[in-house]
Amino acid sequence: MHEITVMKDILRIILDTAKKNMVKRIIKVRIETGAFTDLDESWMNRYFKSLTAGTAAHGAELALEKLKPVISCRTCSYEYETENIDQIDLQCPVCGNRCSIIGDSSFRIVDMEVI
């Protein structure tokens, strides 16, 4: 539901950047999201497509990279990435002590490819 406000923010930032850099057309926008960002990728793409119509970003590709949560042992510092925190065992596979889950809900525009 809140994907549209996020996509409007992205569009504003990339069009500002394009204007300042005398860009003709934006080809690709790279975005990195934290492990706990609750945004649906298909809706982000749909909103991006409709919001960019008629702008320098029309037809641009949205390259989304979602960082994976990291399971980190508090005792022996062993770390590994995981896909789904619902399924994980919080017992450290190395020393057997309790692990923590590391990740955030950040949302960062990395760069954009332009002409």
């Binding site: 950047t17 949302f107 960062r108 990395v110 760069d111």
Partner: peptide
């Protein structure tokens, strides 16, 4: 020729 423009900005920055 395409070029890459670095942005490195959080979308929550203005808020």
């Amino acid at each position: 020729m395409t070029r890459i423009i670095k942005i490195d900005k959080s979308i929550h920055e203005d808020n």
